[in-house]
Every structure is written in structure tokens, then in C-alpha cells.
Design a protein around this nucleic acid. Structure first.
Length: 98
DNA sequence: CTAATGACCATTA
DNA sequence: ATAATGGCCATTA
């Protein structure tokens, strides 16, 4: 576990149920404002099990990727009350500021 | 050391 | 609205 990944993990852990955060927001929160891409990279590799990594989405409101498939990601989010319309999420409503 | 690889982002056309 | 573009950055080979 690199320290970068630790921070990513910690930041994601703060996202409350029923809300989502963007990769860019996470990057900002850990002090690497331009490392959004690296954040996704870290998640993909680690497959964080005890962390709600499904609550991390693109800044456009789209889902983005998910190691086990975007279908699962969408399902889990819907299960938490996040409304997904046309494959997109309203960040003004469900976005969480870390 | 260099080069390649992404669960990305913002801008531009 | 969509598509292409250039940039960005931690990790890994």
C-alpha cells in the first residue's frame, strides 16, 4: 500500500451513503488536485474491498469504470438511493464535497 | 533512468 | 448536444 493509495482510501471512506464524489474531488481532497487519473488507477489495482469505491464517479456525472463492471456499480448506487437517469447522476444533488 | 498504462479532466470544434 | 485533443500523475515494467 503506497501512501497515495492510503490517502485515496481514507478520502473515499468519508463519502456518506447515498452520495457520490468525483475522482477530481478525491484528488483535491488528498492534496493532489491534478491526480484524478492516478486515483482511478489506484482503485483499479487495489480492488478495495472494505471501501465504498463504487461511490466515485466521473466529473461529468457519468459512472466511469469499475473493476467488477459498471452494471454492478450502478446497481449498488441505486441501492443506496442514488438516482441514475440516462446513465448519469445529478452531482448537484448527490455530489459530496470531501 | 525511461516508457507505457489507465475506474480522469478541461478545453475546443 | 457529441467528438477529439492535450494534459495530468502514480505506478509498474
Amino acid at each position: 500500500m503506497t501512501s497515495f493509495e492510503e490517502k485515496v482510501c481514507a478520502a473515499i471512506g468519508k463519502i456518506p451513503r447515498g452520495k457520490v464524489a468525483t475522482y477530481a474531488a478525491i484528488a483535491r481532497a488528498i492534496g493532489r488536485p491534478r491526480a484524478a487519473r492516478a486515483v482511478g488507477n489506484a482503485l483499479n489495482k487495489n480492488l478495495f474491498k472494505s471501501v465504498p469505491c463504487h461511490r466515485v464517479v466521473l466529473s461529468t456525472g457519468r459512472l466511469g469504470g469499475y473493476a467488477r463492471g459498471t452494471a454492478v456499480k450502478a446497481k449498488r448506487l441505486r441501492g443506496e438511493g442514488v438516482l441514475i437517469r440516462n446513465g448519469r447522476i445529478n452531482l448537484n444533488k448527490f455530489g459530496f464535497k470531501v
